[in-house]
């Protein structure tokens, strides 16, 4: 218990220090790297708080995708922030004091941290999710069970949000340029460095294999469609960075990306409509296998995770290619 508190306090202190450093740093590349550190500390805290799935996602998203996107944008815009004028501080201070006051006021009646008798744990759904789910769905990772089945609609919404972000980036910075348009910059080519080329060549199959493992292992351990999708995307991003966008786009053509982006939500909603046609409610996976509802749930969850994986990978790759090819085709 003592070690837990010590580790927790240390991580929280690092977290706050990093947040303050981010807020004060005017060099934005440095602030972005600190942002990656901030996400890493957050992920560690998630592990400490028993949220391994969330930690996995935060590590993949915060340290990986967000950082890459921010760096890409900084390359396209300006990397140094102007001095914040004094007059801007006052409204911010007022807003923060008000919000902080409300939060401090609220904290007085919050259940103590880690209490086993808090309203969250005494609510009957705790039993439903932790114990009843073993009979209803029968997969050990309850996070996956809640995510894909009990609250499947939220997950559909989440996938739609990712899809929307993909549309937004396509509409704003345009589709990734055609391979022949993205001429590599002559003076700088990462693939010229033998170590980088060979290491990333070796890593590629493992990254993709790991993504597949994460995708299909989500029922038993931490992982699932979203994390797998981000890892897939990370693989393509690495390939694009090292070997050039033109080569990466030959591996994953634009048309395939566009279809994959829309395919995930379609499969997910289609699954919901199919369960309706089979006589159940929207997203009721029991009816997929009427004799063995548990098997139906397994099948449904697997389909859902796969749909998420493909679309997330496609959207993240599209977003990266869009930003990157905007830089190269300039």
């Amino acid at each position: 218990m003592m070690t837990f508190v010590l580790t927790n306090v240390t991580l929280l202190v690092i977290l706050i220090a990093t947040a303050i450093a981010i807020s004060r740093m005017r060099a934005l590349y440095e602030a972005t790297m600190l942002g990656a550190l901030f996400s890493l500390v957050t992920a560690s805290l998630f592990v400490l708080l028993d949220a391994v799935d969330v930690a996995f996602t935060e590590a993949a998203v915060g340290v990986g995708i967000s950082t890459v996107l921010l760096l890409g944008v900084l390359a396209l815009t300006r990397s140094r922030e102007a001095v914040t004028p004094r007059r801007r501080h006052l409204p911010a201070l007022i807003a923060v004091l008000l919000a902080g006051g409300a939060l401090g006021y609220a904290s007085q009646d919050l259940p103590a941290f880690g209490a086993a008798d808090s309203p969250v744990f005494s609510h009957p759904i705790t039993g439903t999710y932790l114990h009843q789910s073993q009979e209803d769905i029968g997969i050990p990772n309850t996070v996956t069970a809640v995510l894909a089945s009990y609250r499947g609609l939220d997950t559909l919404g989440e996938l739609v949000v990712v899809f929307t972000a993909g549309l937004a980036v396509l509409s704003l910075v345009g589709p990734p340029a055609r391979p022949e348009e993205t001429m590599p910059r002559a003076d700088f080519h990462l693939a010229d460095y033998r170590i980088i080329r060979i290491i990333s060549g070796i890593l590629m199959p493992f990254i993709l294999l790991f993504a597949l493992y994460v995708l299909f292992h989500g029922e038993y351990g931490p992982g699932g469609g979203f994390q797998a999708g981000v890892i897939f995307a990370a693989g393509f991003v690495l390939y694009g960075l090292v070997f050039g966008l033109d080569k990466a786009q030959r591996v994953v053509p634009r048309v395939a990306l566009r279809i994959l982006v829309s395919l995930g939500p379609l499969v997910f909603i289609g699954l919901g409509l199919a369960t309706m046609l089979l006589g159940g409610q929207f997203l009721d996976f029991d009816v997929l296998d009427p004799n063995h509802p548990e098997e139906g749930q397994h099948l449904g969850i697997l389909l859902v995770e796969t749909a998420i994986g493909f679309t997330v990978a496609a959207v993240m790759t599209t977003v990266f290619f869009s930003f990157a090819s905007r830089g190269v085709s300039r």
């Binding site: 904290s107 009646d109 808090s118 309203p119 005494s122």
Partner: peptide
């Protein structure tokens, strides 16, 4: 904040659990 003091996200269930305890400060902030 509302979840922390009730343990639920369902609107009807929340309403039921919030029927009393109006002086809970976390709830007011929520």
């Amino acid at each position: 904040l509302a979840y922390a003091v009730t343990g639920t996200l369902n609107m009807a269930d929340l309403a039921e659990r919030l029927a009393e305890g109006h002086d809970n400060r976390a709830l007011q902030a929520a």
